[in-house]
Design a protein around this nucleic acid. Structure first.
Lengths: 244, 244
DNA sequence: CGGGCATTTGAGAGTACTCAACCGATGTGG
DNA sequence: CCACATCGGTTGAGTACTCTCAAATGCCCG
């Protein structure tokens, strides 16, 4: 839908090499410099607007993406029309890597964002030649698996407060990975997104946030920003807080 | 803990080649015959008793396993002592494959079982030489990821009845993969296991089963067996049944 | 037969959902 | 420029579902 403006390879390379920590880190981590250059040649930067789709469930998986800037959500639309958010992705994360030939879920942006598109064919050809890349892909897949299982444990046995607390900690960890402070966080997703992610209604999410504010655990200085004030308490809610 | 009796390579090979569909399928699927033989040489069959551990969270990940016979559960023990069951595994499934050097969770048997132990070093050496194996590993990892995400969607937005229905369908699919009918299923796990998997209490699981029996959706002819009678209704509960 | 374990069932409590109204910010058209 | 619609968020009241606690049953094993 939105305006997508592939940049030149030259700009692209500059961007990648200049900001590897923030953009390409997910895939490049631990790779030799020359491999990184090879990857750069197979990729292009694309800007997309909020609510834009990086790809849709069922599309041919012709490319993988790394998120350079912004935030994205992965989601599946359930038969009855509701949506289940599988996870959020942040700068440096790899999106759309799959062993199948079609994407298993939608990837949608929650705010204006920049993604780096990497041709899948080229990536796979490369990974045959460079065992570093293929091992890295497997590592990332295992990482995602661990995250999903973590999330599973989180969801199944936690109260609404525990879930929101765990969500905030995930957000903090993502921010830290990208060099942010960890107390002042961007919160670009809506209450509906958070609810669809945690298996709660909009109202419940809103009530938990209100409760946290009243209890002095956090502030929301402006729309789209949270400041975590009482980290120990939030951590305690996230790990101890039982639903039973 | 339990008696573990490694069998000879000769027996092992025979078992593997003779029953590839039931035991080694998960890993071997799509591999050339010679690769299968190479794998067999790096592996050994082990029998373990119910409640025995295949490995524990934090153990050095020196081996991967395929389940030949029986059923296993993957679980993490939460800080407060409760346990979250990540998933169940059935004959043909690969267990304990990870990109890290320690297992991320416990693997425990729910009944007497036979597993096939494959040395990890040998497997990785092999996968460097044989791109078929490494691609297969990635595929399996992606498969697990998809399953975990599926489960996530299931857990977050379903009622207790919906969850149990989804669990039964998972069980049915596992049985079908192993050539069983799909209506008469082994149910080796306890209500507690099911509850820890679905995020429900023992009592809730029991009540849902009782309700299903009363509604004529299933029978439990004997301990450890269910017969699914009204598949359409179960499927409808699993997909439509909302918690909200 | 007795002890332990898994399961079932009942009664009451608590949590999260549903429905509904309201607020504030944003954007659009008259 | 202002009325108005829209959207995201908040708050309240009542309901429904699942949990907790408790007791009873059935089963397996020594």
């Amino acid at each position: 839908m939105g305006p997508s403006a592939p940049l030149s390879v030259r700009q692209n390379l500059a961007a990648l090499c200049g900001s590897c920590a923030g953009s390409f880190r997910g895939l490049c981590h631990g790779l030799e410099e020359q491999d990184q250059h090879v990857l750069s040649d197979a990729s292009s930067l694309i800007r997309l607007p909020a609510r834009g789709a990086v790809f849709r469930e069922g599309d041919r998986a012709n490319a993988v993406f790394t998120l350079v800037d912004g935030a994205a959500k992965l989601l599946r639309t359930l038969p009855d029309g509701r949506q289940q958010i599988i996870g959020f992705r942040f700068p440096g994360d790899l999106i759309g890597y799959t062993a199948r030939d079609r994407y298993p879920c939608d990837a949608e942006l929650v705010c204006n964002a920049t993604v780096c598109r990497i041709d899948r064919g080229k990536l796979e050809a490369m990974s045959r030649g460079c065992s570093g890349i293929s091992h890295r892909l497997l590592e990332l897949c295992a990482e995602d698996l661990a995250t999903a299982q973590e999330q599973l444990a989180a969801m199944a046995q936690r109260s609404s407060e525990g879930r929101v607390a765990a969500f905030l900690l995930m957000l903090r960890d993502a921010a830290r990975r990208n060099g942010a402070s960890g107390t002042e966080l961007a919160l670009p997703m809506t209450r509906a997104d958070i609810g669809d992610y945690l298996g709660l209604t909009i109202e419940s999410v809103s009530r938990v946030f209100a409760g946290f504010r009243r209890a002095g655990l956090l502030q929301e200085p402006m729309r789209g920003t949270v400041r975590l004030l009482d980290m120990p308490e939030i951590e305690s809610l996230a790990s101890g807080g039982s639903a039973h």
